[in-house]
Amino acid sequence: MVKRAYSLELKENISAETAHKNSLSGILKNNRAFVCSDKECNIKLTCTKWSDKSAKRIFFTPSSKNDLHIAGCNESGEDEEKHRSKFEKENAKTTIAKNGVIVLKKISEQKTVKQESKYIKDAITIPTISNKSSNDFNRVKPEGSYITSILSLIDMYKDTDLNNKNKILKISSTENLTLEEFFFNIDTTSPIPTNKTRIYYGKVKVSTFKETGLKISFINSHISQPLFTNKKRMFDKYYGKYAKEHVDKDAEIYVFFRGYLNEKNKWCSFNNEFYKDLYFSKTNILY
C-alpha cells in the first residue's frame, strides 16, 4: 500500500486523503483510476474506502493481487519491498528446481510483474560456464526468471535450501556465476576486479556530503573511493533505514552495493541510480 498515486482523471499526483476527499465531493468518479507515481513502476492502483465518510486510514493498493511494485519503486514501503523480494526469490527457487538459471536484470528492464508467472514460458537456452565443482552445470540451461531487487539476491544467498556453489546466476551473455562468486567481501578480499558487476559489501561510515548527498566511506583502508548517492532518495527507502539512523555519527555499519568499479577507479551503479543498488545493515547479515 502507498499514500500517493497519479490520478488519471486529474492528471496529477495526489495523496490518498485528497483522492478520498475528492471522491466524496464528486470531483473524482472512479476509485480505480490511479497508477503508481513512480514512472518506472506505473502499476494500476485502487483507492481504499472510497465511499466511506468515516474512513480514517486511507491508502492506494494494487488493483490486481497479481501485480507488484517494481524493485526500488520510489513510492513503495518496507512491506512492498519485502513482498517483492519474497516473490523473486521463490520464483528463482522454482526455476533452479527446473534446472534453469536466474537472469540479473536492471529495474528499468522489468516493468509490472505478474505473480502467477512462475517462470518465463518462452525460455531461451544459453550455454553455462563449465565448472567441475558444480554438479550438472556443464550443459545448456534455460533462462527461467529475473532478479531485480538487491534484497532478493541477499535473501537467496542466505537461503539454506540453495547451494551457493552452483552457477545459477546469469550476469551477462558471457558470464554465469555462483552466489558465492557474485558476493565480494571488500573487508577480506583484494584487489577489487575492474568492470565486474558484483554485490560488494563491507563496513562503512556514512556522512552528509554537500547537504543533499550521502557519502559512504569504506573502513578498509585499501578502498579509497567512497560511494555517493542522494541522501533524501536513500533515506526514503527501506534499504536506507540503517544509514539514516547512523549518518554523521561516526558509527560503523555494513553496506551492500550492486555495481562495479571502472578502470578510472570510479564506482558505477548497476541501475545508474545508486540508491536503487544500496542496502544497509547493522551487521553482516549474510552469516
Rank of each mutant, 00 (worst) to 15 (best):
residue 141 K to E: 00
residue 133 S to T: 14
residue 127 P to E: 12
residue 152 S to Y: 06
residue 157 Y to Q: 00
residue 184 F to T: 13
residue 172 S to F: 05
residue 162 L to I: 13
residue 164 N to F: 04
residue 131 N to A: 15
residue 159 D to Y: 11
residue 144 G to P: 06
residue 133 S to F: 15
residue 186 I to S: 12
residue 154 I to R: 00
residue 132 K to R: 15
residue 174 T to A: 07
residue 133 S to D: 15
residue 151 L to F: 00
residue 151 L to I: 02
residue 158 K to R: 10
residue 183 F to P: 08
residue 178 T to M: 02
residue 146 Y to T: 14
residue 185 N to I: 12
residue 184 F to Q: 14
residue 154 I to S: 00
residue 162 L to C: 03
residue 160 T to Y: 03
residue 130 S to I: 12
residue 145 S to R: 11
residue 130 S to G: 12
residue 140 V to K: 14
residue 137 F to H: 09
residue 132 K to P: 11
residue 125 T to S: 09
residue 151 L to M: 01
residue 149 S to R: 08
residue 142 P to Q: 01
residue 131 N to I: 07
residue 139 R to W: 10
residue 143 E to K: 06
residue 144 G to H: 02
residue 144 G to A: 05
residue 161 D to M: 07
residue 149 S to W: 07
residue 172 S to N: 11
residue 151 L to N: 06
residue 183 F to W: 05
residue 124 I to T: 10
residue 131 N to S: 12
residue 173 S to E: 14
residue 132 K to T: 15
residue 140 V to C: 05
residue 144 G to Q: 04
residue 170 K to Q: 11
residue 127 P to S: 14
residue 186 I to G: 14
residue 145 S to E: 12
residue 167 K to Q: 11
residue 138 N to E: 13
residue 176 N to H: 08
residue 140 V to G: 02
residue 152 S to D: 04
residue 158 K to W: 01
residue 140 V to Q: 11
residue 155 D to G: 00
residue 153 L to N: 02
residue 185 N to F: 13
residue 131 N to V: 09
residue 167 K to S: 08
residue 178 T to L: 03
residue 168 I to A: 03
residue 150 I to Q: 05
residue 145 S to L: 06
residue 151 L to Y: 03
residue 173 S to Q: 12
residue 156 M to A: 01
residue 181 E to A: 12
residue 133 S to P: 01
residue 142 P to C: 00
residue 161 D to Y: 08
residue 173 S to K: 15
residue 171 I to S: 08
residue 163 N to W: 03
residue 171 I to V: 15
residue 128 T to Q: 06
residue 175 E to K: 11
residue 159 D to K: 09
residue 176 N to W: 02
residue 157 Y to W: 03
residue 163 N to C: 08
residue 179 L to F: 10
residue 133 S to N: 15
residue 131 N to R: 15
residue 149 S to H: 05
residue 136 D to L: 14
residue 163 N to K: 08
residue 130 S to C: 02
residue 129 I to F: 06
residue 140 V to P: 06
residue 172 S to K: 04
residue 139 R to E: 14
residue 168 I to Y: 10
residue 164 N to K: 10
residue 163 N to G: 01
residue 144 G to N: 01
residue 132 K to C: 12
residue 166 N to A: 05
residue 143 E to A: 01
residue 171 I to L: 11
residue 150 I to Y: 02
residue 181 E to K: 13
residue 170 K to A: 07
residue 146 Y to P: 03
residue 162 L to T: 09
residue 134 S to L: 09
residue 168 I to S: 02
residue 155 D to L: 07
residue 149 S to T: 05
residue 173 S to N: 12
residue 148 T to Y: 06
residue 155 D to Q: 11
residue 184 F to P: 13
residue 139 R to V: 14
residue 152 S to P: 03
residue 136 D to C: 08
residue 153 L to E: 02
residue 125 T to A: 04
residue 169 L to R: 07
residue 164 N to P: 03
residue 157 Y to A: 04
